[in-house]
């Protein structure tokens, strides 16, 4: 997996966001409720495989990622995305059925976790926290 993707910033200076979730409702909800000016949705993907393809063409700066998806699940997808662009920020958005799975995704390189179902405010806060910096706690 060569890091052959071209990472051109958007002309308006915003960060690029990709939404990856097999539920159309969730994808639309995230798109609709995105209240952060610094982010612009450049792609949505219904499974991990599509997400990786889209990411190769145009890597996003920030990704929201479901875990249970057909074709390629969120954990494998995270692993691939991080290989392509090591500084990508990934927020896992998943129902909290199994903490061990969520932790697995974090081990592969995701930065944070948001539990489904989430409110508009929780989403905004989580994304803002994500942008504040991975690994930063102050």
């Amino acid at each position: 997996m060569a890091a052959n993707a071209k990472a051109e910033p958007l002309t308006n200076g915003k960060l690029k966001l990709m939404i990856c979730d097999d539920s159309n409702i969730i994808r639309r909800k995230i798109e609709r409720e995105l209240k952060i000016d610094r982010l612009q949705v450049i792609a949505t993907a219904a499974n991990g495989k599509l997400a990786v393809e889209a990411f190769r063409k145009e890597p996003a700066d920030v990704v929201t990622m479901d875990i249970t998806m057909p074709e390629m699940d969120g954990i494998e997808c995270v692993e691939n995305l991080v290989k392509i662009k090591p500084d990508v920020l990934i927020l896992i958005i998943s129902a909290l059925s199994d903490k061990a799975t969520a932790i697995e995704a974090l081990k592969k390189g995701a930065n944070g976790f948001l539990c489904k179902p989430f409110t508009d405010r929780q989403l905004t806060e989580a994304l803002e926290e994500l942008l504040r910096g991975a690994g930063n706690d102050d």
């Binding site: 976790f113 926290e129 706690d137």
Partner: peptide
């Protein structure tokens, strides 16, 4: 890599 605040729930 992980954001401390964003993993408290898990």
């Amino acid at each position: 890599r992980v954001n401390e605040k964003l993993v408290k729930t898990i």
